[in-house]
Design a protein around this nucleic acid. Sequence first.
DNA 1: GGCGGAAAGG
DNA 2: CCTTTCCGCC
Length: 354
Amino acid sequence: MDCSCVSDLLFAPPALPALWTPGFAFPDWAYKPESSPGSRQIQLWHFILELLQKEEYQGVIAWQGDYGEFVIKDPDEVARLWGIRKCKPHMNYDKLSRALRYYYNKRILHKTKGKRFTYKFNFSKVVLVNYPLLDMAAAATGSPLLLTPSPFGGAPGPDAPPLTPETLQTLFSAPRLGEAGTRTPLFTSETDKLRLDSPFPFLGSGATSYSKPPGLLGPYGRAFPEYPWNFNPYLTGPFPKLPPSLYPPHFYPNPLASSLSHLPSAGAGGGPTAVPLLASTGEGLGPERPSGLTAAPRLALPGAGGPEAALGGKEDSDSELEITDVSGCSSDSEGDEALPVPPKAKAGKGGTGS
DNA sequence: GGCGGAAAGG
DNA sequence: CCTTTCCGCC
């Protein structure tokens, strides 16, 4: 019934990197707000983000230029990876891209026209949509706060005014729940809903170069350190960052319980685990970015560069054990050819297209 | 390649 | 609701 990809099982909890704070791994809330009727499983954009944050896949998909803009260097590969993840052996770029296209309306993605295989994330949406923090804030405020506002049917678009990076940051900086009510810049008390439709300039301009700090680190990057995470994905606001890793749910049966038990200082949610996984590539707090797309937007990862070093010679924890093969898929489908599925993506292809 | 309708499935 | 699959169209 369910596709038990071996890949999933392969994710045997390797000794979690010391720095790996399980708490914010990629808890359930990333997949479902909390009490979602239907079981929510990984969504494509989650997956894309996951790929994007991993160095191993730079040859396949990578951030490119603008804030939130990325290019799929190897569409087939990405599709295959996605297919593996979803146990859809017949996945291909055509289908994947269709799914991507549905994001246009949802305002999660945009197409960068003129550039092949290039899309752009609407981070404000992506981020907000994942943050229970907002829910709390809303609750405290007394505003229902719809994170998934009027869909696209009769919605927003034009009337969406404010919401600046600062606003976002402010919101994200919200230190405590009790304080939440005090600051809810993002909410329109009347509408009871968030206006995250026209967020950052990088969307509005549609034009181009906004050498803004890529990744999600930009605006709210430095907001984390201050945040006392007694993380409680569901109740206590986690943090304004996209999950560092997209491990399958199996990986974290009980995100909280298991995580906390492992945390030395995390006791009963009293110990701030600190360590914002945000690997400020140097732009988060930094004055300006080198514009070098190379060092760009990669999301912070426990092994993205900063922490890795701190691990003190930890082997590539990044563990490729990620998506690899679909051999374990419940052969549901058409029983067609089994994918040979090469072990891993070849990140060696730097000069793919251009 | 990229778009979006339509139907189907989980 | 979120894709997956298929497809005609540009």
